[in-house]
Simulated assay, not measured.
Amino acid sequence: MAKNSSTKLCIVPIVGVVLFFFNFPLLNFNQKIATISYFITTSLGYIDIMVAGVWMSRLLKNNLMNDVFNIENESFMQETKLIENEYSINLPTKFYYKQKWNKGWINIVNPFRTTIVLGTPGSGKSYAVINNYIKQHIEKGFSMYIYDFKFDDLSTIAYNHLLKHQDKYEIQPKFYIINFDDPSKSHRCNPLNPDFMTDISDAYEAAYTIMLNLNRSWIQMQCDFFVHSLIFLQFSIIKFQ
C-alpha cells in the first residue's frame, strides 16, 4: 500500500509538468485541433500539479515517522465525566489522547433500553462489562435474573456481592439456583405447577417444549401427524391433570 502511494506521488507530478509545460508541440497542428489539444493538456497538467502539491503538503505537515502505527491520528477525546442516576451503570475506561493516557467513563444512564456486548471468546466481555452490571445493580438494590452459561462464574460473583450489600435492600432478597445439569447444586421448582398456567396456551407451550426436548429429531418433523398427536396428548395430560 505504501509502495503504491509513493509511486503515485512520483508519477503524478511528472505527468503534470509534462502536460503543462511541454505541450507546445501541439500548437504545430491546425488551429482547431491545436486549440482543443492545448486546452485539454494544460488543464490536466494543472490539475495533476495541484493534486501532487496537496499530497506533498500533507506529508510535510504530518510527520508519520513519529507515529508509525497512526495511534495519534486515530485517537479522539472521550467522555471523562461520571454521570450517575439511580439506574445507571458506569464503566471506567482508559484512552490515549494528545500523547497521554486519560481516565474516562462509559455512562449507561438508561439500561432498560437493553445493552448488547459483542466480542470474541476471551476478549474480556464478562470481566469488563457483565461483572460491573451485576455488582452495580446489586449495590443499587435491584433483583436479578442471571443466565450463568459457565456456571458457577457469574453465580459466585453475584452471591458474594449480595452478601456484602444486603443492607441496600429493604426486604432481604433470596438467592436461588436452577441447574439442570447438576440437580445436586440446584433448588427445586415445578414449572408445570397449575398456578403458573393461567391460559390454555401455557399448557400447550409446556407440552411442546417437553416433547421436542425428549426427542430432538422431532424438530425437523414438526408438521408430522404423529409428532403433533403426541404433543397434543401431552398437552391434554397437563391441562386436565
Rank of each mutant, 00 (worst) to 15 (best):
I177E: 06
T156S: 08
S201V: 10
K164P: 00
K140R: 15
F151D: 07
S186M: 14
I134P: 00
M211S: 09
S201Y: 10
I219S: 07
T156G: 02
I146V: 08
Y208I: 05
D153W: 07
F180R: 11
M197A: 06
F180A: 14
L154P: 00
S217Q: 10
D199S: 06
W218P: 03
E170F: 14
R216W: 09
D181S: 15
D167A: 09
L162W: 01
I146Q: 00
Y208G: 05
N132I: 03
S217A: 12
N213F: 13
Q166N: 08
P183M: 12
I177M: 06
L214Y: 10
S143I: 06
A207Y: 05
D195M: 10
Y133I: 03
I200H: 07
Q136W: 02
P183R: 10
A206M: 13
M144A: 07
P191F: 14
Y169G: 06
P194F: 04
E205D: 14
D148Q: 04
Q166A: 10
K140G: 03
N132T: 08
F196V: 01
P191K: 11
F142D: 04
I200F: 05
I210S: 03
L214M: 14
I157M: 00
A203F: 10
D167W: 09
L212K: 04
I219Y: 11
S184W: 11
D152Q: 09
A206S: 13
D152G: 03
K150W: 12
N179H: 06
D182Q: 14
G141P: 04
I171K: 12
Y204T: 02
I200Y: 12
D152T: 05
N190C: 12
Y159P: 00
F149N: 09
S143L: 15
F151Q: 02
Y169L: 08
E205C: 08
Y176H: 15
M197L: 04
N179R: 03
L163P: 00
I134R: 01
H187G: 15
D148K: 02
N213Y: 12
L154Q: 01
Y169R: 07
S201A: 04
K168L: 08
Y147A: 11
A207L: 07
Q172K: 15
Y145M: 11
I138Q: 00
